[in-house]
Simulated scan of single mutants.
Amino acid sequence: MPHPRDLPLAQARALVERAVAKAEQLGLRGAVAVVGASGALVTAARLDHGGPGGMARARSKAWISATQQVPSAEHLRRMTTLPAPIAAGFVAASPEALFPGAGGMPVEVDGVVVAGIAASGATVSPFLPEGVAPEAVSADGEPANPEDLLIAYAMGTPYAGQHGDDRARWRERFGDLEVAPEAALGMRDAPPAGAQRELAWATALCDAALESAAARGVRIAVAVVDRGGDPIREDRMDDAVAGGVDVARATAAAAARFGTPSATLPDLFGAGAGASSLATLAPTPVLAVPGGVPLLADGRVVGGLGIGGAAPDACAAIAAEVAR
């Protein structure tokens, strides 16, 4: 019996690119994540000025949809009907499900769930943003909320609201205004995103790391984070180990938050409790092992690059090569 595989990186990236394009068209700022059915992240991207926290929320909802194989809205409905001890036990046993919000959707190939996708962030929500044109948040003439619109557009599936009463939110913003189906723009093609300069920078770094790893014959995960350690872009190569994602994110955060390669933290803060206790100070996991390097612009730290999934020396070499 063949072993299952997660959605391939190339296909997952295509979903994220479509969601980012639609988000830019709508003027939204946030993050989009695709998590494999294994529960390991495949890819994720944060739009410029998306703010910290959205990536973690998107990843959580995508994890729920991928592993529970239902829309996260259905999972939320079930959780709210369970006795509190059972609901709390689920979260304790499933730490990636810390944010059981609506909006995540399972991704199927040939009838099998291979991933989940979700969006969240600064202005990615079910609420209609100020100044949005009614035609832009209408799908076939019916009200559509921006968050669910992003995901439906990315997947190429008919729009279906996951956040309750779209029409009530529509009436609050637009009153009795009606949009003719032929005038609705919500599911129309969006041009490729062209205004995401920070995301493009992070994507180029990840691309370079993936190319370097392929040339070396190793499978890795790569993360680029901002100066606070929040991810901007993350990718995991096909069949790369699941834990590589966590190592990449944590070494990138260590390098960004402390402005030094992650491997040097024990030298700076002590090889024992000193370096290990740094993780208790940071709001995001940090890891003091080889693989993470700070990213500089005009002499200041603007982020971190982390590599995981291969031998630590190989990860460190790829990170140093890419960050040069």
Rank of each mutant, 00 (worst) to 15 (best):
P2L: 14
H3F: 12
R5I: 09
P8Q: 11
L9N: 03
V16Y: 15
V16M: 12
Q25H: 13
Q25D: 15
G27R: 08
L28P: 02
R29Q: 06
R29N: 12
G36V: 05
V42R: 05
T43F: 12
T43P: 06
A45Y: 10
L47K: 12
L47W: 12
G53Y: 03
M55I: 04
R59M: 15
R59W: 14
W63G: 08
S65V: 00
E74I: 09
T81A: 09
T81F: 10
A84N: 09
I86Q: 15
A87M: 07
G89Y: 13
F90M: 15
A97N: 12
L98N: 13
G121Y: 07
G121H: 05
F127D: 08
E130T: 10
G131E: 13
D140M: 05
P146I: 04
E147I: 11
Y153R: 10
A154Y: 02
A160W: 04
Q162F: 10
D166E: 07
F174M: 10
G175S: 10
D176L: 10
L177R: 15
V179N: 02
A183C: 01
D189S: 08
P191S: 09
P192S: 07
A193L: 12
Q196N: 05
R197S: 14
R197N: 07
A200S: 08
W201L: 11
D207M: 03
L210D: 06
D230S: 15
D230K: 05
E234S: 08
D235N: 13
A240S: 14
V241K: 03
A242I: 14
A242G: 15
G244L: 02
A248M: 06
R249H: 15
R249S: 08
A254C: 00
A255D: 07
S262Q: 05
G272W: 03
A273E: 09
A275T: 09
L278Y: 04
G292W: 01
A297N: 05
V301Y: 04
G303K: 00
L305A: 03
D313L: 07
I318F: 00
